[in-house]
Design a protein around this nucleic acid. Structure first.
Lengths: 245, 245
DNA sequence: CAATTGCCTTTGTATGATGAATGAAATATC
DNA sequence: GATATTTCATTCATCATACAAAGGCAATTG
């Protein structure tokens, strides 16, 4: 009879513990390449049983953050091994995405992908797809001064565009594009003029999709990405730059 | 005292069980949208303890194959929710990748990505990067009639190219490109003439990288993809086509 | 008939025990 | 003294059990 006094509280803590360990890894509490504490130590640190700790470690391992070596310990993998395309991993990284110079990578990847996605969308988007994209555009237009709303609408627009491309690979990239957008838009979109220009181009893309005009869709995408590049430049300037190589 | 008679065998089974469940999902033993057996039933079916089953389910859940609903059961997610960019997931899917019409998606994605990657590689590849790519090319050249060796070399070539682009997003796509290549090359590369042509173009790309000629690198990539498109057409013809909508 | 209540099932968490394997310390051997 | 072998402690891997929590279902009750 464990804890005899009348009743043991057992809240659902799995997700929290997993996130906590992941955050601690991202925050360098557990340095890259080093060993995590033993499972028993982790139990004490996070105040849960070994069951929860082990299941959390399995999740982290399955996403490339750590690697369990039998009877030796659990080591934190280098960031190159992390599944950075995984939605959860990106959530764990959060604003620290700035420090991974991922934003530039994502922008380059967007330059490769989004014009193609726009073309495919012009070809294959359903009426519902276009409607969803337009709804996102309307939210952008109506966001006015609400920066958070504008960002979310912009993110939704690009996610819907990828979805409309009906390409499963592109669709899977929505999460990382979302993450990159969220953190670069926040840091750059103060100026209303910038937003107005973005709204206009996004509208043009919607129209191109309606007309099934592949060339125009591609062109709009390129212009969007030029704006995104400018935004990114502003964002990294405003941000404590990662003194990288 | 469990199993009193002298000693309990406890082999490492976690990975096998995880793969087994995943395979059974892919093989429609556990249909999409349906419930998995209860954890206790799974224990019996796979002959392991609930600990192992639960940790396996956590892994599968973290990769989007299943979703555990508290006290209700574990449901198999639709394939759109699977993390198909995840290396392990692709291994679990294996040859059934044909049935997911992923191959066409990947080819489209390669058309978007690889020319860019080739450009970036021309810009940023280190001497080691180019050397690794060239080693892969040599293995292609020397493969002669060995189809398996040729395929592996081809796969290595493209993985090395993505790595040489020094773009983390592109690099993460190596696993799905690998999977798609393996299964479409196997089904198409019988003809020696096809391989000779491929070897030649791959060589041209290596030279373009050496000269840091972005335009030439991009052009070579395009020509490779035209060949890949032809290969894919052959592969799907040779394969029991998924009569999909 | 409808709403509530209670039971059953199933997942979530906790705990203790034991197997197994690794790395290092201790020992034996040359 | 240097090397090879053995032992041992540590730590992960698995098993088994127990109980809590909550969804679903059915019986109860108004």
């Amino acid at each position: 009879m464990p804890e005899g006094e009348g009743g043991v509280r057992r809240p659902r803590v799995q997700k929290n513990v997993t996130r906590a360990i992941a955050s601690d890894i991202c925050a360098d509490v557990f340095p890259i390449g080093g060993f995590l504490p033993t499972e028993n130590d982790l139990c004490q640190r996070y105040g849960v049983s070994r069951t929860v700790i082990r299941e959390s470690l399995k999740i982290l391992e399955s996403k490339g953050l750590v690697r369990g070596r039998s009877r030796v310990g659990t080591v934190v993998c280098s960031k190159e091994e992390w599944n950075i395309l995984d939605q959860q991993v990106l959530e764990w990284i959060g604003p620290r995405i700035f420090e991974l110079d991922l934003l530039a990578c994502v922008l380059d990847a967007r330059r490769a992908i989004e014009p193609f996605a726009a073309e495919f969308a012009a070809e294959r988007a359903t009426v519902q797809d276009v409607a969803e994209i337009e709804r996102a555009w309307e939210r952008m237009r109506d966001a006015e001064g609400d920066l958070e709303a504008f960002t979310q609408a912009d993110v939704a627009f690009h996610a819907a565009l990828l979805k409309a491309s009906h390409n499963q690979v592109f669709m899977q990239l929505a999460s990382i594009i979302r993450a990159a957008l969220e953190f670069s838009l926040h840091a750059s979109n103060e100026a209303a003029a910038v937003r107005d220009e973005a709204v206009e181009i996004h509208k043009s893309l919607v129209e191109a999709l309606r007309l099934r005009d592949k060339a125009a869709a591609r062109e709009c995408s390129h212009r969007m990405l030029d704006i995104a590049a400018r935004d990114l430049a502003i964002a990294v300037k405003n941000h404590p730059a990662p003194a990288g190589a």
